[in-house]
Design a protein around this nucleic acid. Sequence first.
DNA 1: TGCCAAGTATGACGTACGACCTACAAAACA
DNA 2: TGTTTTGTAGGTCGTACGTCATACTTGGCA
Lengths: 229, 229
Amino acid sequence: MPRSTDSRSRMIKAAAQLFRQRGYHATAFSDVVEASGAPRGSIYFHFPGGKQELAREAVALAGDEIEQMVAEAAGHCDGPGSFVRALGDLVAARLEGSDYRSGCAISTMVLELAPQNEELSSDFEKVFERWRRALVRQFEASGIAAGRATDLANLVMSVFEGALVVSRAARRIDSFAAAIEALAEFIEHEPRRPETQSFGYATSADPSVGTRPPPSRTEQGSAQSPGVP
Amino acid sequence: MPRSTDSRSRMIKAAAQLFRQRGYHATAFSDVVEASGAPRGSIYFHFPGGKQELAREAVALAGDEIEQMVAEAAGHCDGPGSFVRALGDLVAARLEGSDYRSGCAISTMVLELAPQNEELSSDFEKVFERWRRALVRQFEASGIAAGRATDLANLVMSVFEGALVVSRAARRIDSFAAAIEALAEFIEHEPRRPETQSFGYATSADPSVGTRPPPSRTEQGSAQSPGVP
DNA sequence: TGCCAAGTATGACGTACGACCTACAAAACA
DNA sequence: TGTTTTGTAGGTCGTACGTCATACTTGGCA
Protein backbone atom coordinates (compact mmCIF):
# COMPACT_ATOMS: atom_id res chain seq x y z
CA MET A 1 0.00 0.00 0.00
CA PRO A 2 1.93 3.01 -1.24
CA ARG A 3 1.96 5.92 1.13
CA SER A 4 0.80 9.36 0.17
CA THR A 5 3.54 10.74 -2.04
CA ASP A 6 3.49 14.16 -3.58
CA SER A 7 2.53 13.19 -7.10
CA ARG A 8 -0.12 10.91 -5.73
CA SER A 9 -1.86 13.69 -3.87
CA ARG A 10 -1.45 16.02 -6.81
CA MET A 11 -3.24 13.49 -8.95
CA ILE A 12 -6.07 13.26 -6.45
CA LYS A 13 -6.48 17.01 -6.38
CA ALA A 14 -6.47 17.29 -10.15
CA ALA A 15 -8.90 14.41 -10.46
CA ALA A 16 -11.22 15.95 -7.90
CA GLN A 17 -11.39 19.15 -9.88
CA LEU A 18 -11.96 17.39 -13.19
CA PHE A 19 -14.60 15.09 -11.76
CA ARG A 20 -16.32 18.09 -10.29
CA GLN A 21 -16.42 19.97 -13.56
CA ARG A 22 -16.99 17.23 -16.12
CA GLY A 23 -17.96 14.17 -14.20
CA TYR A 24 -16.47 10.71 -14.06
CA HIS A 25 -16.83 9.37 -17.57
CA ALA A 26 -15.72 12.52 -19.34
CA THR A 27 -12.54 12.64 -17.31
CA ALA A 28 -9.82 10.58 -18.92
CA PHE A 29 -6.70 9.41 -17.19
CA SER A 30 -4.72 11.42 -19.67
CA ASP A 31 -6.51 14.54 -18.45
CA VAL A 32 -5.57 13.80 -14.88
CA VAL A 33 -2.01 13.07 -15.92
CA GLU A 34 -1.76 16.29 -17.87
CA ALA A 35 -3.39 18.45 -15.20
CA SER A 36 -1.28 17.06 -12.39
CA GLY A 37 1.97 16.80 -14.29
CA ALA A 38 2.35 13.25 -13.10
CA PRO A 39 3.70 10.54 -15.40
CA ARG A 40 1.23 8.25 -17.09
CA GLY A 41 2.74 5.06 -15.87
CA SER A 42 2.39 6.03 -12.25
CA ILE A 43 -1.36 5.69 -12.23
CA TYR A 44 -1.50 2.00 -11.55
CA PHE A 45 1.34 2.19 -9.15
CA HIS A 46 -0.39 4.75 -6.98
CA PHE A 47 -3.91 3.51 -7.70
CA PRO A 48 -3.88 -0.23 -8.32
CA GLY A 49 -7.65 -0.13 -8.29
CA GLY A 50 -7.61 2.06 -11.37
CA LYS A 51 -9.94 4.90 -12.06
CA GLN A 52 -12.37 3.87 -9.37
CA GLU A 53 -9.75 4.02 -6.66
CA LEU A 54 -8.73 7.47 -7.82
CA ALA A 55 -12.37 8.50 -7.70
CA ARG A 56 -12.80 7.19 -4.19
CA GLU A 57 -9.87 9.28 -3.02
CA ALA A 58 -11.32 12.31 -4.76
CA VAL A 59 -14.66 11.74 -3.07
CA ALA A 60 -13.03 11.57 0.33
CA LEU A 61 -11.23 14.82 -0.40
CA ALA A 62 -14.54 16.39 -1.34
CA GLY A 63 -15.94 15.36 2.02
CA ASP A 64 -13.14 17.23 3.76
CA GLU A 65 -13.81 20.34 1.73
CA ILE A 66 -17.51 20.34 2.52
CA GLU A 67 -16.91 20.06 6.26
CA GLN A 68 -14.42 22.88 5.96
CA MET A 69 -16.93 25.13 4.23
CA VAL A 70 -19.56 24.41 6.86
CA ALA A 71 -17.09 25.31 9.58
CA GLU A 72 -16.15 28.49 7.80
CA ALA A 73 -19.77 29.53 7.36
CA ALA A 74 -20.40 28.77 11.01
CA GLY A 75 -17.74 31.28 11.92
CA HIS A 76 -19.48 34.04 9.98
CA CYS A 77 -23.03 33.99 11.27
CA ASP A 78 -25.17 34.58 14.29
CA GLY A 79 -28.09 32.19 13.80
CA PRO A 80 -29.40 29.41 11.58
CA GLY A 81 -30.75 31.78 8.93
CA SER A 82 -27.55 33.72 8.54
CA PHE A 83 -25.61 30.47 8.67
CA VAL A 84 -27.46 29.27 5.59
CA ARG A 85 -26.82 32.59 3.88
CA ALA A 86 -23.13 32.45 4.73
CA LEU A 87 -22.83 28.94 3.32
CA GLY A 88 -24.73 30.12 0.28
CA ASP A 89 -22.27 32.95 -0.24
CA LEU A 90 -19.32 30.59 -0.08
CA VAL A 91 -20.84 28.20 -2.59
CA ALA A 92 -22.05 30.94 -4.89
CA ALA A 93 -18.61 32.51 -4.97
CA ARG A 94 -17.05 29.27 -6.08
CA LEU A 95 -19.73 28.72 -8.70
CA GLU A 96 -19.37 32.18 -10.18
CA GLY A 97 -15.60 32.17 -9.88
CA SER A 98 -15.42 29.00 -11.94
CA ASP A 99 -17.73 30.42 -14.58
CA TYR A 100 -20.47 27.98 -13.60
CA ARG A 101 -18.31 24.93 -14.08
CA SER A 102 -17.64 23.94 -10.48
CA GLY A 103 -20.71 22.89 -8.60
CA CYS A 104 -20.83 20.22 -5.96
CA ALA A 105 -17.74 18.04 -5.92
CA ILE A 106 -19.58 14.76 -5.95
CA SER A 107 -23.09 15.28 -7.31
CA THR A 108 -22.09 14.63 -10.91
CA MET A 109 -20.47 11.37 -9.96
CA VAL A 110 -23.45 10.43 -7.80
CA LEU A 111 -25.83 10.79 -10.70
CA GLU A 112 -23.51 8.98 -13.09
CA LEU A 113 -22.60 6.07 -10.84
CA ALA A 114 -25.08 5.61 -7.99
CA PRO A 115 -26.41 3.22 -7.13
CA GLN A 116 -24.90 0.85 -9.71
CA ASN A 117 -21.36 1.17 -8.40
CA GLU A 118 -21.67 -0.08 -4.87
CA GLU A 119 -18.32 0.96 -3.48
CA LEU A 120 -18.55 4.50 -4.72
CA SER A 121 -22.16 4.73 -3.65
CA SER A 122 -21.12 3.88 -0.15
CA ASP A 123 -18.51 6.63 -0.29
CA PHE A 124 -21.06 9.14 -1.56
CA GLU A 125 -23.33 8.21 1.29
CA LYS A 126 -20.52 8.78 3.77
CA VAL A 127 -19.85 12.26 2.42
CA PHE A 128 -23.50 13.20 2.67
CA GLU A 129 -23.64 11.77 6.16
CA ARG A 130 -20.65 13.86 7.23
CA TRP A 131 -22.28 16.91 5.75
CA ARG A 132 -25.59 16.09 7.43
CA ARG A 133 -23.94 15.69 10.80
CA ALA A 134 -22.12 18.99 10.47
CA LEU A 135 -25.38 20.77 9.68
CA VAL A 136 -27.26 19.06 12.48
CA ARG A 137 -24.57 20.13 14.91
CA GLN A 138 -25.03 23.73 13.82
CA PHE A 139 -28.79 23.67 14.08
CA GLU A 140 -28.79 21.98 17.43
CA ALA A 141 -26.29 24.49 18.73
CA SER A 142 -28.75 27.22 17.87
CA GLY A 143 -31.51 25.64 19.90
CA ILE A 144 -33.37 23.62 17.30
CA ALA A 145 -34.63 20.25 18.52
CA ALA A 146 -32.62 17.20 17.50
CA GLY A 147 -35.10 15.45 15.23
CA ARG A 148 -36.11 18.68 13.59
CA ALA A 149 -32.47 19.56 13.03
CA THR A 150 -32.02 16.39 11.01
CA ASP A 151 -35.01 17.14 8.82
CA LEU A 152 -33.76 20.66 8.24
CA ALA A 153 -30.30 19.35 7.41
CA ASN A 154 -31.79 17.13 4.73
CA LEU A 155 -33.69 20.08 3.37
CA VAL A 156 -30.64 22.32 3.33
CA MET A 157 -28.48 19.72 1.60
CA SER A 158 -31.15 19.19 -1.02
CA VAL A 159 -31.56 22.89 -1.68
CA PHE A 160 -27.84 23.41 -2.14
CA GLU A 161 -27.39 20.42 -4.40
CA GLY A 162 -30.43 21.24 -6.48
CA ALA A 163 -29.84 24.96 -6.72
CA LEU A 164 -26.38 24.22 -8.07
CA VAL A 165 -27.85 22.05 -10.81
CA VAL A 166 -30.39 24.65 -11.85
CA SER A 167 -27.94 27.51 -11.78
CA ARG A 168 -25.34 25.69 -13.82
CA ALA A 169 -27.90 25.24 -16.55
CA ALA A 170 -28.92 28.88 -16.39
CA ARG A 171 -25.39 30.22 -16.14
CA ARG A 172 -26.76 32.84 -13.80
CA ILE A 173 -26.74 33.06 -10.03
CA ASP A 174 -30.33 34.33 -9.73
CA SER A 175 -32.17 31.11 -9.12
CA PHE A 176 -29.48 29.89 -6.73
CA ALA A 177 -29.68 33.09 -4.73
CA ALA A 178 -33.47 33.04 -4.71
CA ALA A 179 -33.64 29.48 -3.46
CA ILE A 180 -31.06 30.03 -0.73
CA GLU A 181 -32.71 33.24 0.43
CA ALA A 182 -36.16 31.65 0.61
CA LEU A 183 -34.67 28.76 2.56
CA ALA A 184 -32.83 31.08 4.93
CA GLU A 185 -36.01 33.00 5.69
CA PHE A 186 -37.91 29.85 6.50
CA ILE A 187 -35.17 28.60 8.77
CA GLU A 188 -34.79 31.98 10.39
CA HIS A 189 -38.30 31.69 11.78
CA GLU A 190 -37.84 28.16 12.99
CA PRO A 191 -38.79 27.79 16.69
CA ARG A 192 -35.73 27.61 18.95
CA ARG A 193 -35.06 27.13 22.59
CA PRO A 194 -34.56 30.73 23.74
CA GLU A 195 -31.48 30.23 25.92
CA THR A 196 -29.27 29.15 23.01
CA GLN A 197 -29.07 32.22 20.88
CA SER A 198 -25.31 32.10 20.56
CA PHE A 199 -24.45 30.07 17.52
CA GLY A 200 -21.81 27.84 16.11
CA TYR A 201 -18.19 27.69 17.06
CA ALA A 202 -16.90 31.20 16.63
CA THR A 203 -17.90 33.81 19.15
CA SER A 204 -16.06 36.75 17.64
CA ALA A 205 -17.70 36.42 14.27
CA ASP A 206 -17.60 39.76 12.56
CA PRO A 207 -20.75 40.39 10.53
CA SER A 208 -19.10 40.21 7.12
CA VAL A 209 -21.56 37.62 5.99
CA GLY A 210 -22.66 38.91 2.64
CA THR A 211 -19.21 39.98 1.54
CA ARG A 212 -16.89 38.07 -0.72
CA PRO A 213 -15.31 35.07 0.95
CA PRO A 214 -11.71 34.09 0.29
CA PRO A 215 -11.36 32.35 -3.08
CA SER A 216 -10.95 28.61 -3.03
CA ARG A 217 -7.48 27.27 -3.55
CA THR A 218 -7.68 24.76 -6.31
CA GLU A 219 -10.57 26.03 -8.41
CA GLN A 220 -10.92 28.73 -11.02
CA GLY A 221 -11.18 26.96 -14.35
CA SER A 222 -8.26 28.26 -16.36
CA ALA A 223 -5.39 30.46 -15.47
CA GLN A 224 -6.97 33.56 -14.03
CA SER A 225 -4.78 35.76 -11.94
CA PRO A 226 -1.46 35.22 -10.22
CA GLY A 227 -2.09 33.84 -6.80
CA VAL A 228 -1.68 30.14 -6.36
CA PRO A 229 1.09 27.95 -7.79
CA MET B 1 -35.62 17.13 -41.98
CA PRO B 2 -37.00 13.65 -41.33
CA ARG B 3 -40.36 13.58 -39.71
CA SER B 4 -41.00 11.65 -36.55
CA THR B 5 -41.09 8.01 -37.57
CA ASP B 6 -41.68 5.17 -35.18
CA SER B 7 -38.14 3.96 -34.78
CA ARG B 8 -36.97 7.52 -34.38
CA SER B 9 -39.27 8.19 -31.46
CA ARG B 10 -38.44 4.81 -29.96
CA MET B 11 -34.79 5.78 -30.05
CA ILE B 12 -35.53 9.06 -28.32
CA LYS B 13 -37.47 7.32 -25.58
CA ALA B 14 -34.74 4.75 -25.03
CA ALA B 15 -32.09 7.43 -25.04
CA ALA B 16 -34.01 9.52 -22.54
CA GLN B 17 -34.17 6.61 -20.16
CA LEU B 18 -30.50 5.75 -20.55
CA PHE B 19 -29.40 9.35 -20.17
CA ARG B 20 -31.51 9.59 -17.06
CA GLN B 21 -29.99 6.54 -15.47
CA ARG B 22 -26.37 6.67 -16.56
CA GLY B 23 -25.83 10.12 -17.99
CA TYR B 24 -24.61 11.28 -21.35
CA HIS B 25 -21.09 9.95 -21.60
CA ALA B 26 -21.84 6.49 -20.28
CA THR B 27 -24.59 6.01 -22.83
CA ALA B 28 -23.28 4.70 -26.13
CA PHE B 29 -25.18 4.73 -29.38
CA SER B 30 -25.00 0.98 -29.36
CA ASP B 31 -26.91 0.98 -26.07
CA VAL B 32 -29.63 3.13 -27.56
CA VAL B 33 -29.81 0.91 -30.62
CA GLU B 34 -30.06 -2.20 -28.50
CA ALA B 35 -32.62 -0.81 -26.08
CA SER B 36 -34.85 0.58 -28.80
CA GLY B 37 -34.49 -2.29 -31.24
CA ALA B 38 -33.77 0.20 -33.98
CA PRO B 39 -31.28 -0.62 -36.73
CA ARG B 40 -27.78 0.66 -36.25
CA GLY B 41 -27.50 2.38 -39.57
CA SER B 42 -30.49 4.59 -38.96
CA ILE B 43 -28.81 6.71 -36.36
CA TYR B 44 -27.35 9.31 -38.64
CA PHE B 45 -30.34 9.27 -40.88
CA HIS B 46 -32.67 10.18 -38.05
CA PHE B 47 -30.15 12.29 -36.16
CA PRO B 48 -27.72 13.93 -38.57
CA GLY B 49 -26.43 16.01 -35.68
CA GLY B 50 -25.23 12.85 -33.99
CA LYS B 51 -25.37 12.14 -30.31
CA GLN B 52 -25.98 15.73 -29.38
CA GLU B 53 -29.09 15.95 -31.52
CA LEU B 54 -30.41 12.78 -29.93
CA ALA B 55 -29.74 14.29 -26.53
CA ARG B 56 -31.57 17.48 -27.41
CA GLU B 57 -34.64 15.49 -28.37
CA ALA B 58 -34.43 13.53 -25.16
CA VAL B 59 -34.19 16.73 -23.17
CA ALA B 60 -37.29 18.12 -24.87
CA LEU B 61 -39.13 14.92 -24.06
CA ALA B 62 -38.07 15.27 -20.44
CA GLY B 63 -39.59 18.73 -20.39
CA ASP B 64 -42.92 17.31 -21.50
CA GLU B 65 -42.82 14.69 -18.79
CA ILE B 66 -42.11 17.21 -16.06
CA GLU B 67 -45.01 19.41 -17.08
CA GLN B 68 -47.20 16.35 -17.13
CA MET B 69 -46.20 15.39 -13.60
CA VAL B 70 -46.88 18.88 -12.33
CA ALA B 71 -50.32 18.80 -13.91
CA GLU B 72 -51.03 15.41 -12.41
CA ALA B 73 -49.96 16.54 -8.94
CA ALA B 74 -52.10 19.64 -9.32
CA GLY B 75 -55.10 17.40 -9.82
CA HIS B 76 -54.49 15.61 -6.55
CA CYS B 77 -54.20 18.40 -4.03
CA ASP B 78 -56.04 21.19 -2.30
CA GLY B 79 -53.36 23.75 -1.58
CA PRO B 80 -49.68 24.56 -2.14
CA GLY B 81 -48.48 22.30 0.67
CA SER B 82 -50.37 19.25 -0.47
CA PHE B 83 -49.38 20.05 -4.04
CA VAL B 84 -45.74 19.75 -3.08
CA ARG B 85 -46.49 16.50 -1.27
CA ALA B 86 -48.35 15.10 -4.26
CA LEU B 87 -45.49 15.94 -6.58
CA GLY B 88 -43.14 14.39 -4.08
CA ASP B 89 -45.15 11.19 -4.07
CA LEU B 90 -45.03 10.96 -7.84
CA VAL B 91 -41.28 11.48 -7.97
CA ALA B 92 -40.60 9.17 -5.04
CA ALA B 93 -42.62 6.40 -6.65
CA ARG B 94 -40.57 6.60 -9.81
CA LEU B 95 -37.32 6.68 -7.85
CA GLU B 96 -38.20 3.66 -5.76
CA GLY B 97 -39.76 1.82 -8.67
CA SER B 98 -36.55 2.12 -10.63
CA ASP B 99 -34.47 0.91 -7.70
CA TYR B 100 -32.92 4.35 -7.27
CA ARG B 101 -31.67 4.53 -10.81
CA SER B 102 -34.11 7.02 -12.32
CA GLY B 103 -33.86 10.45 -10.86
CA CYS B 104 -34.38 13.67 -12.74
CA ALA B 105 -34.33 13.18 -16.47
CA ILE B 106 -31.88 15.93 -17.21
CA SER B 107 -29.87 16.69 -14.09
CA THR B 108 -27.14 14.20 -14.89
CA MET B 109 -26.66 15.69 -18.31
CA VAL B 110 -26.74 19.20 -16.87
CA LEU B 111 -23.88 18.43 -14.54
CA GLU B 112 -21.90 16.64 -17.22
CA LEU B 113 -22.36 19.16 -20.01
CA ALA B 114 -23.40 22.58 -18.70
CA PRO B 115 -22.29 25.16 -19.32
CA GLN B 116 -19.59 23.96 -21.74
CA ASN B 117 -22.01 22.71 -24.35
CA GLU B 118 -23.92 25.82 -25.28
CA GLU B 119 -26.74 24.32 -27.29
CA LEU B 120 -27.64 21.72 -24.72
CA SER B 121 -27.28 24.24 -21.93
CA SER B 122 -29.85 26.39 -23.62
CA ASP B 123 -32.17 23.38 -23.82
CA PHE B 124 -31.65 22.61 -20.15
CA GLU B 125 -32.51 26.18 -19.33
CA LYS B 126 -35.73 25.92 -21.32
CA VAL B 127 -36.80 22.81 -19.46
CA PHE B 128 -36.19 24.43 -16.12
CA GLU B 129 -38.04 27.51 -17.28
CA ARG B 130 -41.05 25.45 -18.33
CA TRP B 131 -41.01 23.74 -14.97
CA ARG B 132 -40.65 27.03 -13.15
CA ARG B 133 -43.60 28.51 -15.02
CA ALA B 134 -45.78 25.53 -14.25
CA LEU B 135 -44.99 25.84 -10.54
CA VAL B 136 -45.52 29.58 -10.51
CA ARG B 137 -48.91 29.08 -12.12
CA GLN B 138 -49.87 26.68 -9.35
CA PHE B 139 -48.69 28.92 -6.55
CA GLU B 140 -50.34 32.00 -7.99
CA ALA B 141 -53.57 30.10 -8.42
CA SER B 142 -53.52 29.41 -4.70
CA GLY B 143 -53.21 33.06 -3.83
CA ILE B 144 -49.48 33.51 -3.43
CA ALA B 145 -48.13 36.80 -4.76
CA ALA B 146 -46.41 36.69 -8.14
CA GLY B 147 -42.86 37.56 -7.14
CA ARG B 148 -43.01 35.31 -4.14
CA ALA B 149 -44.34 32.49 -6.28
CA THR B 150 -41.25 32.67 -8.45
CA ASP B 151 -38.94 32.50 -5.47
CA LEU B 152 -40.83 29.54 -4.11
CA ALA B 153 -40.73 27.84 -7.49
CA ASN B 154 -36.95 28.14 -7.50
CA LEU B 155 -36.84 26.71 -4.03
CA VAL B 156 -39.11 23.80 -4.91
CA MET B 157 -37.15 22.92 -8.03
CA SER B 158 -33.93 22.98 -6.07
CA VAL B 159 -35.28 20.77 -3.33
CA PHE B 160 -36.54 18.17 -5.77
CA GLU B 161 -33.35 18.11 -7.79
CA GLY B 162 -31.14 17.98 -4.75
CA ALA B 163 -33.19 15.48 -2.80
CA LEU B 164 -32.98 13.14 -5.76
CA VAL B 165 -29.21 13.37 -5.74
CA VAL B 166 -28.92 12.68 -2.04
CA SER B 167 -31.41 9.85 -2.08
CA ARG B 168 -29.78 8.11 -5.01
CA ALA B 169 -26.55 8.00 -3.09
CA ALA B 170 -28.29 6.68 0.02
CA ARG B 171 -30.47 4.18 -1.84
CA ARG B 172 -33.18 5.01 0.66
CA ILE B 173 -36.16 7.28 0.38
CA ASP B 174 -35.81 8.73 3.90
CA SER B 175 -33.87 11.87 3.16
CA PHE B 176 -35.98 12.61 0.10
CA ALA B 177 -39.18 12.27 2.09
CA ALA B 178 -37.82 14.37 4.95
CA ALA B 179 -36.77 17.19 2.65
CA ILE B 180 -40.07 17.24 0.77
CA GLU B 181 -42.10 17.14 3.97
CA ALA B 182 -40.15 19.99 5.55
CA LEU B 183 -40.59 22.00 2.36
CA ALA B 184 -44.31 21.27 2.21
CA GLU B 185 -44.80 22.43 5.78
CA PHE B 186 -43.03 25.70 5.14
CA ILE B 187 -45.05 26.34 2.00
CA GLU B 188 -48.26 25.35 3.73
CA HIS B 189 -47.91 28.30 6.06
CA GLU B 190 -47.07 30.73 3.32
CA PRO B 191 -49.37 33.81 3.43
CA ARG B 192 -52.08 33.69 0.73
CA ARG B 193 -54.86 35.92 -0.45
CA PRO B 194 -57.85 34.39 1.36
CA GLU B 195 -60.36 34.36 -1.51
CA THR B 196 -58.34 31.87 -3.59
CA GLN B 197 -58.46 28.71 -1.56
CA SER B 198 -59.48 26.53 -4.47
CA PHE B 199 -56.36 25.26 -6.09
CA GLY B 200 -55.03 24.14 -9.38
CA TYR B 201 -56.95 22.81 -12.33
CA ALA B 202 -58.97 19.90 -11.03
CA THR B 203 -61.92 20.59 -8.79
CA SER B 204 -63.03 17.01 -8.22
CA ALA B 205 -59.70 15.91 -6.87
CA ASP B 206 -60.18 12.89 -4.68
CA PRO B 207 -57.85 12.96 -1.70
CA SER B 208 -55.73 10.00 -2.77
CA VAL B 209 -52.61 12.05 -2.41
CA GLY B 210 -50.36 9.86 -0.38
CA THR B 211 -51.35 6.68 -2.16
CA ARG B 212 -49.39 5.03 -4.93
CA PRO B 213 -49.69 6.91 -8.23
CA PRO B 214 -49.94 5.09 -11.56
CA PRO B 215 -46.54 3.77 -12.59
CA SER B 216 -44.73 5.71 -15.25
CA ARG B 217 -44.81 4.30 -18.74
CA THR B 218 -41.25 3.99 -19.85
CA GLU B 219 -39.40 3.52 -16.62
CA GLN B 220 -38.80 0.60 -14.30
CA GLY B 221 -35.22 -0.44 -14.86
CA SER B 222 -35.55 -4.02 -15.99
CA ALA B 223 -38.55 -6.08 -16.88
CA GLN B 224 -40.79 -5.86 -13.89
CA SER B 225 -44.39 -6.77 -14.41
CA PRO B 226 -46.54 -7.12 -17.50
CA GLY B 227 -48.18 -3.85 -18.21
CA VAL B 228 -46.87 -1.70 -20.98
CA PRO B 229 -45.45 -2.83 -24.30
C1' DT C 1 33.74 3.10 -1.04
C1' DG C 2 31.67 0.14 -4.50
C1' DC C 3 28.26 -3.24 -5.80
C1' DC C 4 23.97 -5.60 -5.86
C1' DA C 5 19.04 -6.35 -5.06
C1' DA C 6 14.54 -4.98 -3.72
C1' DG C 7 11.40 -1.65 -4.10
C1' DT C 8 9.78 2.42 -6.74
C1' DA C 9 8.54 4.70 -10.79
C1' DT C 10 7.74 5.27 -15.79
C1' DG C 11 7.12 5.60 -21.12
C1' DA C 12 5.54 2.63 -24.87
C1' DC C 13 2.49 -0.38 -26.42
C1' DG C 14 -2.28 -3.39 -27.05
C1' DT C 15 -6.92 -4.22 -27.06
C1' DA C 16 -11.42 -2.76 -27.16
C1' DC C 17 -14.95 0.24 -27.97
C1' DG C 18 -16.55 4.89 -28.93
C1' DA C 19 -18.66 8.12 -32.62
C1' DC C 20 -19.18 8.82 -37.17
C1' DC C 21 -19.10 8.06 -42.50
C1' DT C 22 -20.04 5.76 -46.86
C1' DA C 23 -21.66 2.95 -50.19
C1' DC C 24 -25.54 0.29 -51.03
C1' DA C 25 -30.68 -1.54 -50.83
C1' DA C 26 -35.71 -0.79 -50.67
C1' DA C 27 -39.62 1.84 -51.38
C1' DA C 28 -42.26 5.57 -53.16
C1' DC C 29 -43.35 8.46 -56.59
C1' DA C 30 -43.65 10.15 -61.46
C1' DT D 1 -39.55 2.02 -65.68
C1' DG D 2 -36.35 5.84 -64.17
C1' DT D 3 -35.47 8.75 -60.37
C1' DT D 4 -35.80 10.62 -55.89
C1' DT D 5 -36.57 9.64 -51.10
C1' DT D 6 -36.11 6.70 -47.27
C1' DG D 7 -33.61 3.48 -44.69
C1' DT D 8 -29.58 0.36 -43.55
C1' DA D 9 -24.95 -2.72 -42.57
C1' DG D 10 -20.31 -2.59 -42.66
C1' DG D 11 -16.08 -0.22 -42.15
C1' DT D 12 -12.84 3.65 -40.50
C1' DC D 13 -10.50 6.33 -37.33
C1' DG D 14 -9.57 8.15 -32.96
C1' DT D 15 -9.14 7.53 -28.12
C1' DA D 16 -9.63 5.23 -23.47
C1' DC D 17 -8.22 2.11 -20.05
C1' DG D 18 -5.13 -0.97 -18.55
C1' DT D 19 -0.48 -3.72 -18.89
C1' DC D 20 4.41 -4.60 -19.22
C1' DA D 21 9.17 -4.51 -19.80
C1' DT D 22 12.45 -1.58 -18.28
C1' DA D 23 14.91 2.37 -15.89
C1' DC D 24 15.87 4.67 -11.66
C1' DT D 25 16.57 5.02 -6.52
C1' DT D 26 17.62 3.48 -2.15
C1' DG D 27 19.76 0.96 1.38
C1' DG D 28 22.34 -2.98 3.02
C1' DC D 29 26.50 -5.61 2.78
C1' DA D 30 31.41 -6.80 1.62
